[in-house]
Write a protein that binds this DNA or RNA. Structure first.
Lengths: 129, 129
DNA sequence: CTGAATCCGGCAAGATACTG
DNA sequence: CAGTATCTTGCCGGATTCAG
């Protein structure tokens, strides 16, 4: 169990501003998903969160810890090791997250259309017409 | 139907940063709730959203409109009147919002406890210990 | 009444460099 | 490996003022 996190675990434009539903800060939702199947190490988390800097990842993890959604465990070994894991409270968020994802998936086309329609108003009869 | 919006429709510290689930920007979730039972006027919306400035309300409304979640209708009458209303897409968000609210209500105490515990680490054995 | 214009402070997010 | 320190930039939210 607890296989490697795939580098392409998330879509290229994730987190997308197109979804109106957010969990925590910019990266929190993705981090929670990464922890869904067991504890993960700091560096391990950086793989699917392409390009996230250590500082930003630390910030987001601290926020989740503060909210009681994840726990942090440091091991005193030869090689430094720190693991993050979902708390029961954090795990209870998976339900609402699934609902949010289902909604986004179902209405993605509508969201795209709305955005496009707003950007290109009909023949100039926009707000100023 | 479509009674007045109560000034105390929302809790005093709403929107609260305590809930990790957000809908749109800071005010979007509350605006959507305001529109749940029918169209509302600009000034009418300002009542329950205590103290929101016209600029910020306009911004949030524009964002919701851009996302296809609400529609805007201006009436050419003696007194200027503009109404905002949920689109079917916007209305479809009420489900996920109910889920989010139920989650927050159920786990509110845990969230408070987590926050408090994080602020006051046990006898100094905090991160730096 | 329903905004638009302008200005501002604060904070989020990232780049970069450094550390135990 | 798992961060911290520092700096910079951009955006968010709000105050104030003005307009159709």
């Amino acid at each position: 169990m607890n296989e490697r996190l795939a580098p392409d675990m998330f879509d290229e434009l994730c987190p997308s501003a197109l979804s109106p539903i957010r969990f925590g800060d910019k990266w929190a939702g993705m981090i929670i998903r990464c922890l869904e199947h067991g504890p993960r190490r700091f560096t391990e988390l950086r793989i699917p969160l392409r390009g996230i800097t250590a500082k930003v990842l630390t910030q987001s993890l601290r926020g989740l810890e503060r909210d009681g959604l994840i726990s942090r465990t440091a091991y005193n070994e030869a090689v430094q090791r720190v693991e993050y894991e979902l708390t029961p409270l954090g795990r209870s968020l998976l339900g609402p997250m699934a609902v949010a994802c289902a909604w986004a998936e179902k209405h993605w086309e509508e969201l795209l259309d709305a955005r496009e329609a707003y950007e290109t108003p009909v023949s100039g009869f926009g707000r100023t017409g």
